[in-house]
Design a protein around this nucleic acid. Structure first.
Lengths: 108, 108
DNA sequence: CTCATATATTCCTGTCAAGGAATATATGAG
DNA sequence: CTCATATATTCCTTGACAGGAATATATGAG
């Protein structure tokens, strides 16, 4: 797993962009308007997302329609799955886990 | 999904720490030695990971044994799953998708 | 108590990234 | 060609963050 993907998603506006593009592709202007940010900032964030392979632009007349690319999400899904034994087991026994964390230490 | 989790994972050393802790908990000294970084840097990175809820320390004599927490991984897994329609469909038709991207545009 | 080990914190410095403002580029209309 | 729209890029400034060095804190041994 490359840290660059996480880095791209670590910025709140960029994370919002990705979630906006989850359903449909969108042109830059719509993205900026939806996130209430200025157009140059949207273009900059989209550039970071594009450089990490998360999005790609499709030219359409004067607009550039951005959409998500599959690969990073597949990579992330596989990476998360490699931690399955960490979260799947503990999610339902989390309360018990937290309670027994310091069980072996009595009052000093 | 909170960007803080991605931010914590966006630093290469921290990503390595998480992958080191994937199998077993480790004390700080071992983490620093394995990653070939200095102990204070390891402590700092672990602090960031702890503040974003990814790891937790368990005191054990003079050592502090760090281990992964379940919640962020479950959260990430659910988040990735919400993009299932993006990556699952396109992963096997990616080549075709890339080829047909500009099909509608002939030579000018 | 002193000493040693394990870890955390503070201070400093340099680098990088985000936002604002202005401008450049691209494309379509006429 | 000119003009308008859509997007990208450059410059600047400021704040965040990583690493190094030194030091503080915690805990166990004696």
């Amino acid at each position: 797993m490359q840290a660059a993907v996480f880095n791209a998603l670590s910025e709140p506006s960029r994370l919002q962009i990705v979630e906006l593009l989850r359903t449909n592709p969108h042109p830059v202007g719509e993205i900026a308007e939806t996130l209430a940010i200025r157009q140059p900032q949207a273009s900059k964030h989209l550039k970071v997302l594009a450089e990490s392979g998360i999005v790609r632009a499709e030219p359409r007349a004067r607009q550039r329609i951005y959409h998500l690319l599959a690969e990073p999400f597949g990579e992330m899904a596989r990476w998360i799955d490699s931690f399955e034994h960490v979260w799947e087991v503990r999610l339902d026994s989390l309360g018990d886990y937290l309670q027994t964390t310091h069980t072996e230490e009595g009052a000093s």
